[in-house]
Amino acid sequence: MLKRAVLVSMAIVLPLGASVAGPVGTANAAFDPNFGFDFWVDSEMGPIKSRVFRAADGNTNRVVYALDGMRARDDLNGWEIETNVARALTAWNINVVMPVGGQSSFYLDWNAPSNFFGIDGASSTGSAGSSAVGSSAAGDNVAGKRNTYKWETFLTQHLPRELNNRLGFRSTRNGVFGLSMGGSAALALAGYYPQQFSFAGSYSGFLNTSAPGMREALRVAMISAGGFNIDSMAPPWGPQWLRMDPFVFAPQLRDNNTRLWIASGSAVPGGGDVNSALGIVQAVPLEALALANTRAFQVRMDSIGARNVHYDYPPTGVHNWRNWEDQVNRMLPDLSANIG
């Protein structure tokens, strides 16, 4: 039944050419340069910016990473552009780190720079910063095309080391959460780096990426979101591809006893979810696909006796920032109790 739901959802999504991880909805927050600050760290990809927001009480022990979606921009993280979660988190005395960039990366270490048969797959006139639904081709001068994405290394080595050295931030028992692409990435980071991450949250995540048809669905999404080639990320059905699938590494999440918050909307629009017919057509099937993936992951975790997960399925909600911001607020007490 779950596989059928996945395939039906993809049949709706793929003709649209919409990104499987492209957030739908309007901004409900304004960038405030006086609140967070830029934090640059060198990496194999070049200098990478994060935005840091300090806990209200000034502590350095409680830290959470907020991961973006597939259309991550190169100027600001979507969580800062579209939501007010940084203020909510810092009021709970949690330091917030928002990495910037990584469009279509899944926050992984890729095999090679993204190209199609040796040719860059995007027009140099495309905007890497576009968050609109539809194609947003990134030029060949961006990270991931001019060089190889190394996001996993950055998030688990370079960034925490510099946060510790320069700000005194604790680099163990951190939290991490993300939406869509960032949701599966958050679970992967927690699964493979349990000392660093004691808590992980996934909202509308694609948590069964090895299910039939999912690789091709993600292929279409990554072409739409920046013109990136999934084959440059990981070969099909090899160890590297399976390593990124939460459904596959679920036993590690159980054995680590990582506290997890797993959420997906029902794909039924609620009040204020969408403001156009196009938004409904795109946001509903995307969330239906995420819901099928998330339910499959829950079945998998239940089958192996995992008891370290909270599942949250609101009666309404589609693929948009309004619902992801609501999930952060719902998750806050659980996050606060399981980090630091």
Rank of each mutant, 00 (worst) to 15 (best):
R219Q: 15
D140A: 14
G129S: 14
A277R: 06
G178Q: 05
P212K: 12
P23C: 00
S198P: 06
I230K: 02
A277G: 05
W321Q: 11
A128D: 12
D42M: 04
P236Y: 10
N174T: 13
A72G: 12
D273R: 02
A29P: 09
G78M: 11
N275T: 15
S198F: 03
S131D: 11
N338M: 06
L163Y: 05
E287F: 07
R4F: 00
L16C: 00
T60I: 15
S180I: 04
D42Y: 04
N338W: 04
S19E: 03
A56F: 02
I119P: 00
R322I: 08
E325H: 08
D255T: 10
R161Y: 09
N28W: 05
R62I: 03
V64L: 11
M181N: 02
R173A: 13
T26L: 10
E44A: 14
A132Y: 04
S50F: 03
R254P: 03
Q196T: 15
A190C: 06
T90M: 08
P269D: 06
S105F: 09
L242E: 14
Y311R: 10
R71I: 10
T294F: 04
A112V: 12
L207Q: 05
T148D: 07
W40M: 15
F297D: 09
F37G: 07
N257A: 14
I12M: 07
D75H: 07
L332D: 08
P246Y: 01
M70D: 06
